Computed example of a mutant assay.
Amino acid sequence: MSRTMAFNGKFFDAPPSGVHRVAEQLIAATDDLIAEQSGYAADYALVVRDRVKVPSYRKILCVQDNPLIRRIHRIAWEQCYFPLARRKDFILNLCNLGPLCHRDCATLIHDAQVYSTPESYSLGFRLWYKFLFFFIGRRHKLIVTVSEFSRSELVRYGVASADKIVVVHNGCDHVLQVPPDERQLAALKLTPGRFVLALANTQKHKNIAILLKAFAQPELKDVTLVLFGGATKAEFENLGHVVPPNVRFAGRVTDSELVGLMLNAGALAFPSLTEGFGLPPLEAMALGCPVVVAPSGALPEVCGKAALYADPLDPSAWSQTIRTVLDDEAVRQSLVSAGRQRADSFTWKQAARNLFEAVKTVVPA
């Protein structure tokens, strides 16, 4: 590839999210790839509005063309200024959206959940994403997604044709580089091995309500459910959920704190009704934390035989399966071993290599 490859860095100026984490890891892995190997002979630039939060790279140049653009709204920057400034470049958009007026793009769309689970999103969000997806799927040269399941969903909902979509699985090895911070154990009064981790998220498809019901059952009365993330107890209760007394809310935690919790948890529970990929289960596996997931969306594709599965609509199935993981040492050790082996096959270097092999097919040499 001889053209300049410009990464869309709009996400560096937004609140952190799982999608943004994937973009950061892909860019960092790409930087390592082009620094260490031949065959990626192009100029690479990360184009941002504000360089304050941007990491340093060995080969990728960080570009902020004009300080005045900080005053432009992120959407206007992405749709107007950015494609105009980089009109001769091939643009890589890694956070679902990208400029509609620039055809020479590869865009990573993580899932089709605005179609499959519309109740998880506001009306405005759904309409905006569906509008952009319609044109991105038809105008951009390449659509990338994170699982075969997401690919089938994007085809099913008419976002793009199957021959235009390439699957690039996420990596999870970044979690092994994070130093653990175990202070949350004392702060939440947790006993190692006797608590279960899950996301604090009220979106319907995340299905945390099933865990609240499971932890209200007698089988788990002596086990703590720790919910990490932005949603609070009051938000769950306002939606009509009953939060049992053995549930604790960790709030937003740092990466180091999350690693500290995963290293000490009895299990990670992930009961989503659908997922485009499902990165937290793989992160937990990499750290030796057993995983219980729902057999939904891309989770079987990602977790394989390295997780236990529980019916996403049956609280008793979750309480019994979690009890098995906590009490049966043979099962636990089997999951730990299989989980580490499974996680080893998902690396960011391989993801970056797969991404750029796909991009080569649509960018003339």
Results as ranks from 00 to 15, higher is better:
338 A>Y: 12
335 L>I: 13
102 H>M: 06
365 A>T: 00
22 V>Q: 05
200 A>L: 02
258 L>D: 00
96 N>C: 07
29 A>Q: 04
47 V>R: 09
317 A>S: 15
96 N>E: 08
99 P>D: 11
181 D>Y: 13
108 L>C: 13
43 D>S: 13
159 V>W: 13
46 L>A: 07
133 F>H: 12
72 I>G: 04
315 P>A: 15
10 K>I: 06
203 Q>T: 13
245 P>R: 14
101 C>L: 12
150 S>A: 15
116 S>K: 09
335 L>T: 08
279 L>K: 07
361 T>A: 12
327 D>Q: 11
316 S>A: 14
296 S>E: 15
101 C>K: 08
270 F>E: 01
95 C>R: 02
36 E>I: 00
8 N>H: 03
61 L>M: 02
347 T>S: 10
155 V>H: 02
236 F>H: 00
202 T>Q: 11
263 L>F: 00
165 I>D: 05
218 P>N: 02
126 R>H: 09
284 A>G: 09
10 K>R: 15
265 A>V: 09
229 G>K: 03
274 T>M: 10
249 F>V: 00
317 A>D: 10
21 R>K: 11
2 S>E: 12
215 F>L: 04
257 E>I: 01
240 G>N: 01
174 H>I: 02
13 D>Y: 15
298 A>Y: 03
128 W>L: 14
248 R>T: 06
53 K>H: 07
119 E>D: 15
59 K>C: 10
115 Y>E: 15
283 E>V: 09
